[in-house]
């Protein structure tokens, strides 16, 4: 009888530990990259790669203006409607087109910043993305933004660990992440 009680208690204990484990946040960073500004996207990747160095699992969710930053300049796709073509032309096509959020001065500021970064040995956005891929930073691109702006999956950069998803995926990741950021 006593033995049976112990067994029951053990089972209860096991299931409550499992429940606690489910609630405990993982050592993970979940980041929304909403901005398509060069400086803010660069900061996002600096934080992402830094977080991996700190031993964290990192997932980035690119939405709205952040979405076109991950397009590949070389990838041209057809089959777009008029609006899609318009957005496709007007929005940046990849990292080389993105501008500073301040002091852009018709592109001059961005060019100056890029040369300054080179001089000061600060990694470029392209290098940071390559590093993030190497470090296993996962990236989700927002399907809704893509649909809205008429982007096709084939337009995006070749990045191991890039996937397409919606808000529920982000929230599922964010829910069990210790750190969440919106940039």
């Amino acid at each position: 009888m006593d033995m049976q009680n112990v067994e029951i208690q053990l089972e209860e204990l096991k299931s409550s530990i499992e429940a606690i484990n489910k609630k405990t946040a993982e050592n993970k960073l979940a980041m929304i990259v909403f901005s398509g500004d060069m400086d803010k996207v660069l900061a996002s990747f600096i934080i992402a790669t830094g977080a991996v160095a700190m031993g964290m699992d990192v997932v980035m969710f690119f939405t709205f203006w952040g979405t076109p930053v991950l397009r590949d300049k070389k990838n041209n796709v057809g089959g777009k409607d008029v609006m899609g073509k318009m957005f496709g032309t007007m929005l940046p096509k990849g990292t080389s087109d993105v501008k500073l959020s301040k002091m852009n001065m018709g592109g001059m500021g961005t060019r100056m910043m890029k040369s300054l970064m080179k001089k000061k040995n600060v990694a470029s956005l392209e290098e940071m993305i390559a590093l993030a891929e190497e470090l296993g930073v996962r990236i989700y691109v927002c399907e809704m933004s893509m649909d809205l702006m008429g982007f096709k999956r084939d337009e995006f950069i070749d990045y191991n660990g890039l996937d397409f998803a919606g808000v529920a995926t982000f929230l599922q990741e964010a829910q069990n992440s210790k750190v969440q950021l919106f940039i």
Partner: peptide, 14 residues
């Protein structure tokens, strides 16, 4: 030497 944030920490962690 000469590397800027976040490279020193990224490289040392590797």
């Amino acid at each position: 030497k000469g590397l800027a944030c976040p490279m020193p920490v990224v490289k040392v962690s590797k």
